[in-house]
Design a protein around this nucleic acid. Structure first.
Lengths: 193, 193
DNA sequence: GTGTGCATGTAATGAGTTACATGATTAC
DNA sequence: GTAATCATGTAACTCATTACATGCACAC
C-alpha cells in the first residue's frame, strides 16, 4: 500500500482501457480522470520504464518514429487487479477554502462571503461540465462494459458539487447574506433554530 | 501562493486562537482542523523557528522547563490576514476510491459494491462525529466570535458526507443492489434540526 | 520557414511524512 | 519505579511537480 503503487494503478488502468503512448496517457489522465486524479510527466515516464522492466507492460512501435505505444500484458492485468483490491490510501486533507473560513474571524465576513460565492459559482460550473460529459459518454460509450463505472464517478462529482452549493448557500445565510457590495457590520445571529 | 505558506497560515491561525506549545499546536491541528487540514511535526517545528526569526511569533517560557508557548505578534496577525487573503491553492486530486471504481470493470461488481458499502458506512460515522462536535461547540463556545466560522466548516463536512451517502446508495442501485444491508430510503429534504 | 502539437526524457526542487533520538513530568 | 504522555528537534526518505533540453511532423 505504498503511495507509489497508486501511480502504477492509474497507469495500468489507463492502458488497460486502451494502449497508447506515454504522452497520450498523461493527456487521458488529465482529461478523463482529471476530476479525481492527477499524474505528472515526472511520474509517468519513470514508472512506465519500471513497469516495462517488470514485464507488466510492453512497448510496440507506433506509427511515428520515436514514439511507442504501451499496452498491458496479462501479468500487468493481474497486477492491476491486485492493486485495485488493496485498501484505499487516504491522502492527508488539505482544504484551503475551509482553512480560510475556519479563521474567518480574522478575515472578516465580507471576504468570507466572497470566498463562498466564488466556491458556489465554481461548483455550478463543475456540475454543468459533468453533465455535459455524462451526455457524451452515454451516447458514445453506450453498451460499453465501462459505462456504468464511468457514470458512477461522474455521479460522485455531481453529488459533491451539489452538496457544496447547498452548503455555501447555507453558510452565506449564516453570515447574514446581503448580496450588496456595501459594508455591513456583522449582525449577531439569533440562536439557531 | 507557494504551498509553503499554507503551513504558515495554519500555524499562525491556530496560535491566533490561543497561544500554545508546538506539541499542543499539532494536537489541535489534528483534532480540530483534522477533517480538512493536516500538518506533521516535521513541518511545524522548522516553520515555527522561521516564524520566530521573522518576528511573527514569540516564545514565552511556559510552566514547564524545556517547553515554550508560542503566541502571535501584531506583525504575525498582519501576516496571517495577508495569507488568508491570498487565493486558495488547489491541491491536485488523488481520490483512491473513485480511481478504483473507474476501473470497476477490472475489479468486478462484487468488490465495487463492497467499496461503496464501506465508503457509505464511513460517511455515516463521520456525520455522527460532526454532529457530536457541533453540539459540543455550540455549548462551549456559545457567544464566541469564532463560533459561526467553526459551524460553517462543520457544516461542510456534514453536507459532503450526506452527499456521499446518497451517491453511494445510487451507485449501489446502479450496480444491481441485491444486498440491502442497511436500508437507505431517499432522505426527505428537511430543515436543519 | 515557422509555429503548434506530439513525443520523450532528466534534473532540480520542494513538499511532507516518518522514524529516530532525547528527555522531562505525571499518574499509577 | 515504570509506563504513558508531553515536549522538542533532526535526518532520511518518498513523493510529486516543474522546468529544462531535445527533436519530429505537419499545417499554414
Amino acid at each position: 500500500m505504498p503511495r507509489r503503487s497508486q501511480s502504477e494503478m492509474a497507469i495500468l488502468g489507463g492502458l488497460s482501457m486502451q494502449p497508447m503512448t506515454a504522452y497520450a496517457l498523461r493527456e487521458a489522465i488529465k482529461d478523463v480522470l482529471g476530476h479525481f486524479w492527477s499524474e505528472s510527466f515526472g511520474q509517468i515516464y519513470p514508472a512506465l520504464s519500471q513497469l516495462e522492466q517488470q514485464g507488466l507492460v510492453t512497448r510496440s512501435h507506433a506509427s511515428r518514429p520515436g514514439s511507442s505505444a504501451y499496452s498491458v500484458t496479462p501479468a500487468g492485468l493481474e497486477r492491476l487487479r491486485e492493486l485495485l483490491s488493496e485498501p484505499v490510501v487516504e491522502t492527508p486533507p488539505r482544504h484551503g477554502l475551509l482553512l480560510r473560513l475556519f479563521f474567518g474571524r480574522i478575515l472578516g465576513p465580507g471576504q468570507c462571503r466572497e470566498l463562498l460565492l466564488t466556491a458556489r459559482a465554481k461548483a455550478e460550473r463543475r456540475i454543468a461540465e459533468y453533465e455535459a460529459i455524462e451526455r457524451k459518454v452515454r451516447e458514445e460509450d453506450a453498451g460499453s462494459p465501462d459505462l456504468p463505472y464511468v457514470l458512477i464517478t461522474l455521479s460522485s462529482g455531481i453529488h459533491g458539487s451539489r452538496a457544496q452549493i447547498e452548503w455555501a448557500t447555507e453558510a452565506l445565510a449564516l453570515l447574514g447574506d446581503q448580496t450588496s457590495a456595501g459594508n455591513h457590520p456583522p449582525r449577531p445571529k439569533e440562536s439557531q433554530p
